[in-house]
Nucleic acid binder design. Structure first.
Lengths: 175, 175
DNA sequence: ACCCCCAATGCAACAAGTTGCATCAAGCTA
DNA sequence: TAGCTTGATGCAACTTGTTGCATTGGGGGT
């Protein structure tokens, strides 16, 4: 289960409230490990029960907002986990099933669905590239920045690749 | 839910028993939509209840083995679904979280985990390429074969890309 | 002061996927 | 023929992720 460790990572980068974590998952970490606010709040409870994370009781004037921060045990756990991650997950891609289905029962409206996919992948790709241009313009960076940059580049390559696949599929359907 | 449609696709390609479907999922369709025998048997029951699939009662001398085949309604449903597939699923990649965690709390044994990943991706890549060389050597194929080939090429590109990412990550860690 | 809205947190039910084990029938071996 | 193995099917419990809605408290408008 890596949601827990994605949260530990987020908190290692910066202590936050639950809602801030939700936003950060929408913006950055969640690009590679998406999570809803439900999952996040649930998991924060578990992490606190495990003693990896600590939260402050909200004082008066700050509603129900709790601040979470990483405990040393959590940092230790995270470091341990980094060397222990499991094998890569298999792909699970609806589009690939649909291509094969189209080969078996005919194309139907597949081209339409493909262009929607193409559009989504293009958007994501552009989005990532914009972040890259903004945050990683400097070619000379310390190791930690280079790792972060690599993660982003992986996302770009991933999306660009699906763009190419969709285009080729559309080409085959048109021919 | 595309497991149902992956099964319809498999049955459109060729009627089978449950166990045969399990094997085909291990060999080919499952490369892009993995499923356990449990999921498959359960789903076959649902498909039959929906009237998309039909199964024969096992006669004497063939144990409990049931043969499944696609019904016209199932073929119709599959054709409909092909134009209706949803947006691409977001990536969910443990390794990306780990890279970011390593940037935050230090590399630990990440290099070890990375080389394991690298090895897995290389294996899969080689495996797919072998299938390609065996089944898609002929450059001149009808549309349905070209679609099938594209699916395989997508798998190759996907794996090759992770190979490159792992190599680059290892490079950064060594530097 | 009252009301309304909003952000933050949370519950509960559900859907999908995973794991471990159980059963049933055939065929093999002794 | 009794026991063992193997292949096919299936049940039940569990984990993970999703969806829809509920509660709580602060702050702004009137």
């Amino acid at each position: 289960m890596s949601l827990s460790h994605a949260l530990l990572t987020a908190l290692a980068e910066c202590p936050s409230t639950g809602a801030e974590l939700v936003r950060r998952f929408d913006r950055s970490i969640g690009y590679f490990w998406p999570a809803t606010h439900q999952q996040i709040y649930r998991e924060l409870g578990t992490l606190e029960a495990s003693g990896w994370v600590e939260s402050s009781d909200p004082g008066p004037g700050q509603g129900r907002t709790r601040f979470y921060r990483l405990l040393p045990a959590g940092r230790e756990e995270l470091r341990r986990w980094v060397g222990q991650i499991g094998d890569p997950r298999p792909i699970r891609e609806e589009m690939m099933v649909a291509l094969r289905a189209a080969a078996a029962v005919g194309p139907g409206d597949l081209a339409l669905a493909l262009s929607r996919h193409l559009e989504r992948h293009r958007e994501k790709c552009d989005h990532y590239r914009a972040i890259e241009a903004r945050d990683f313009a400097d070619p000379d960076m310390p190791r930690e920045r280079r790792l972060q940059h690599l993660v982003l580049k992986a996302g770009i390559a991933y999306e660009a690749q699906w763009v190419a696949i969709c285009e080729e599929a559309l080409g085959i359907l048109e021919s």
